[in-house]
Amino acid sequence: KVKIAGPGLGSGVRARVLQSFTVDSSKAGLAPLEVRVLGPRGLVEPVNVVDNGDGTHTVTYTPSQEGPYMVSVKYADEEIPRSPFKVKVL
């Protein structure tokens, strides 16, 4: 029921550039959304989540370095389908 889309989860994500993606939970009811961005060697990146007021949230983060990242998206305390997402930061 929760959908996710945006360039911040795709290929070609650049280090030190603001990345974003949208989480659409409009068909999933009200529940807490939790997003974690883990970088190389367990680095935890700050994440900004904005409630758009229409059942969607815009998530932004800036990867601080190149390497493999994991983006975990939980809704109602459960990983959404395909989460955690593997993101290769260049």
Rank of each mutant, 00 (worst) to 15 (best):
I80A: 06
G42L: 07
T62N: 06
L9D: 03
G12M: 14
L33G: 01
K88F: 11
R36Y: 08
R82M: 15
T60C: 08
L33T: 03
L18S: 10
K1V: 05
I4H: 02
G8W: 03
V49K: 08
V87I: 13
P81G: 05
L30V: 13
P84S: 02
T62L: 09
F85L: 09
T22F: 07
P68V: 15
L9F: 05
V89S: 12
G39P: 02
S72Y: 10
V35P: 03
F21P: 00
Y61D: 00
D77P: 00
A76E: 10
Y69W: 04
H57R: 10
V71G: 00
M70P: 00
G29P: 13
E66T: 11
L38D: 11
T58E: 10
A31V: 03
G55W: 08
K86E: 15
G10D: 08
A15L: 08
S72H: 15
L33N: 01
L90F: 07
V59I: 07
K3C: 11
S11F: 11
A28E: 04
S26H: 08
V17W: 05
P40R: 04
R16F: 07
E79R: 03
N52I: 09
T58S: 09
G29A: 10
P32D: 12
E34W: 08
V47G: 03
V47E: 03
V13M: 05
E34V: 13
V50D: 14
K88V: 13
R36L: 09
M70N: 15
Q65M: 14
V2S: 03
G55Q: 11
A28P: 05
L9T: 04
A31W: 06
S20Q: 11
P68Q: 14
N48F: 12
G29F: 07
R41A: 15
K74W: 11
F85K: 04
Y61G: 01
P46S: 10
A28R: 03
K74A: 05
I4P: 00
V13R: 02
G6W: 05
P81F: 04
P84M: 02
T60N: 13
S26F: 04
E78D: 07
S11C: 08
V2P: 00
V37M: 06
V49M: 14
S20F: 10
Y75P: 00
P68W: 15
N48A: 10
E34Y: 09
G6A: 04
F21H: 02
D24W: 05
L9A: 03
I4A: 11
V89F: 03
N48G: 12
K86R: 15
R14K: 15
V49N: 04
I80W: 01
V87G: 02
R82H: 14
D24L: 03
L90Y: 07
T58P: 01
P84H: 03
R82D: 15
P84T: 03
V50T: 14
S25V: 15
N52V: 08
A15C: 12
V87Y: 05
G67K: 00
D51T: 12
V50H: 15
V44K: 11
E78T: 12
V47S: 13
D54K: 11
H57D: 03
A31E: 14
V37I: 14
G29K: 13
K27P: 05
T58D: 10
L18Y: 05
T22K: 09
L38G: 09
Y69F: 06
A76R: 10
V50F: 15
K27A: 14
T60E: 13
E78N: 08
S83D: 02
K27H: 12
L33H: 04
K3Q: 09
L30W: 12
I80F: 03
K1I: 06
G8K: 03
V50G: 09
S64K: 11
S83M: 03
G8Q: 03
T56R: 11
N48D: 12
T62S: 05
G12E: 15
R82T: 11
V37K: 02
T60D: 06
G53N: 13
M70C: 12
T62G: 01
G67L: 00
T60M: 09
Q65P: 00
T22V: 11
S25L: 13
I4F: 07
A5N: 10
V35T: 03
P7E: 10
S83F: 02
L43T: 14
F21L: 04
R36W: 06
S26T: 09
G8R: 02
D77V: 02
V87N: 02
E45F: 04
P7Q: 08
G53P: 09
E66V: 12
N48K: 15
P46N: 14
K88C: 14
L33I: 10
G10V: 07
E79T: 05
E45W: 05
V73C: 06
G8T: 03
I80L: 09
R14S: 12
D77M: 08
S72F: 05
Y75C: 06
G8H: 04
S25Y: 06
T60W: 10
R41F: 15
E79L: 05
A31P: 01
L30Q: 12
D54L: 06
A31I: 04
M70H: 15
S11T: 14
Y69D: 00
L18K: 11
L18W: 04
N48C: 11
D51I: 07
P32R: 12
G8P: 03
K88L: 12
S64T: 12
R14H: 13
G8V: 03
G67Q: 01
D51Y: 14
L9C: 06
G10W: 05
L38C: 14
G6N: 05
E79V: 04
S83C: 06
S25E: 03
L43W: 07
V17M: 14
I80H: 12
Q65A: 08
S72W: 04
V59F: 06
V87R: 02
V50L: 11
R82P: 09
V73R: 00
I4M: 09
L38R: 13
V49I: 12
P68G: 14
V23A: 03
D54N: 12
V44F: 11
M70F: 13
D51S: 13
G67A: 03
V87F: 14
L33A: 03
K86F: 15
V35E: 00
R16H: 13
L9M: 05
G8E: 04
V2N: 03
Y69P: 02
F85W: 12
V17K: 10
L38P: 01
G10Q: 07
G39A: 07
G12Q: 13
V87C: 04
Y69A: 02
L43A: 12
G55M: 13
L9I: 15
A15M: 11
L33M: 07
Q19V: 02
A76V: 03
R82K: 15
I80G: 02
D51A: 11
L90S: 09
L33C: 06
L38T: 15
V47A: 11
S11E: 14
D51C: 12
G12R: 10
V35G: 01
G8N: 04
V44T: 15
T60L: 09
P40Q: 04
V37A: 05
A28Q: 05
Y61R: 00
V35M: 03
G6I: 04
S20E: 14
G67V: 02
E78V: 14
N52C: 10
V23N: 00
P81T: 07
G8F: 04
K88D: 15
V35H: 03
V73N: 01
G10H: 07
N52A: 09
G29T: 08
V2D: 03
A15W: 06
L33Y: 00
R82C: 15
D77E: 10
T62A: 04
V73H: 00
P46R: 09
Q19K: 02
R16C: 09
S72G: 07
S20L: 08
S83R: 01
R41L: 13
E34L: 10
T60F: 12
V49W: 06
G42W: 05
H57M: 05
P81I: 05
P46E: 12
V23I: 11
V2F: 04
